[in-house]
Amino acid sequence: MRVLLKKVLDCDPDAAWRAIRSPAVFREVSSPLLAVDSLEPGGFPTVWQPGDHPATFRALGLVPMGTQVIRLAEQTERPDGVRILRDTGYGVSGALAAVTLWDHRMAIAPDPAGTGKTLYRDQLIFKAGLGTIALWPSFWAFWQVRMLRLEHLAPTWRHDVGVDAPVPVENDGEYGQA
């Protein structure tokens, strides 16, 4: 089954790319429907890197759903400038192990209308044997809520600490506009 969403987010593509590679953003857009905790030594990294990231999931922060490996790959060198983060992870235990195919792709591109905003496309393809049809409404509903959360948060992704920091003015050593 497939869930497919497409929206223009109110932030530039670089900010959106940083955000979808952030475990903190992942946890925030999943909340309150899902709570996710890292099983990696030291917890989730600040920025997702390609590779495997084991995690536990709880529905509504309370009901254990099991363990899943988030398996990430990036595609950033496309001629059309689209950047894709792909998760082909798999359930290890609990209800998550019922899903036999997980292919989640998030694509980031400049808005074709030239607004400076981000065209965000999100596609999930999954299979769970005979349970696929039964799970589709839950995944569809979760993806709708997730997209609303992404839309709400996107304008806050404009400031990049370290990049947008004030620079010292040479003549008086105070911070300000250069």
Results as ranks from 00 to 15, higher is better:
residue 19 A to T: 04
residue 139 F to V: 09
residue 124 L to M: 07
residue 111 D to L: 04
residue 13 P to K: 01
residue 173 G to N: 02
residue 46 T to P: 02
residue 169 V to C: 09
residue 29 V to H: 02
residue 159 H to G: 15
residue 116 G to A: 15
residue 3 V to L: 14
residue 103 D to I: 04
residue 165 A to D: 15
residue 36 V to I: 10
residue 23 P to A: 04
residue 162 G to Q: 03
residue 7 K to G: 10
residue 127 K to M: 08
residue 118 T to A: 03
residue 133 I to L: 14
residue 61 G to W: 08
residue 115 T to D: 02
residue 20 I to S: 01
residue 64 P to W: 03
residue 44 F to M: 07
residue 121 R to L: 13
residue 138 S to V: 05
residue 32 P to D: 03
residue 167 V to A: 10
residue 173 G to Y: 00
residue 69 V to I: 07
residue 164 D to L: 03
residue 44 F to N: 01
residue 135 L to F: 04
residue 124 L to C: 15
residue 51 G to F: 02
residue 176 G to N: 03
residue 113 A to N: 15
residue 6 K to H: 15
residue 79 P to T: 08
residue 169 V to F: 12
residue 142 F to G: 01
residue 88 T to W: 11
residue 144 Q to E: 13
residue 88 T to S: 00
residue 12 D to C: 13
residue 60 L to P: 03
residue 99 V to A: 05
residue 165 A to C: 12
residue 79 P to L: 10
residue 108 I to M: 13
residue 97 A to E: 08
residue 44 F to P: 00
residue 6 K to D: 14
residue 73 A to F: 07
residue 160 D to H: 15
residue 55 A to E: 09
residue 117 K to Q: 13
residue 54 P to S: 11
residue 101 L to Y: 12
residue 143 W to V: 11
residue 145 V to S: 12
residue 87 D to C: 02
residue 157 W to R: 00
residue 125 I to E: 13
residue 38 S to F: 01
residue 177 Q to E: 15
residue 154 A to T: 06
residue 56 T to A: 14
residue 3 V to Y: 01
residue 150 L to Q: 08
residue 152 H to L: 11
residue 136 W to P: 03
residue 35 A to F: 11
residue 159 H to N: 12
residue 9 L to F: 06
residue 120 Y to E: 03
residue 136 W to G: 01
residue 80 D to R: 08
residue 168 P to H: 06
residue 5 L to W: 07
residue 71 R to D: 03
residue 150 L to A: 06
residue 174 E to V: 00
residue 117 K to S: 05
residue 40 E to A: 05
residue 29 V to N: 00
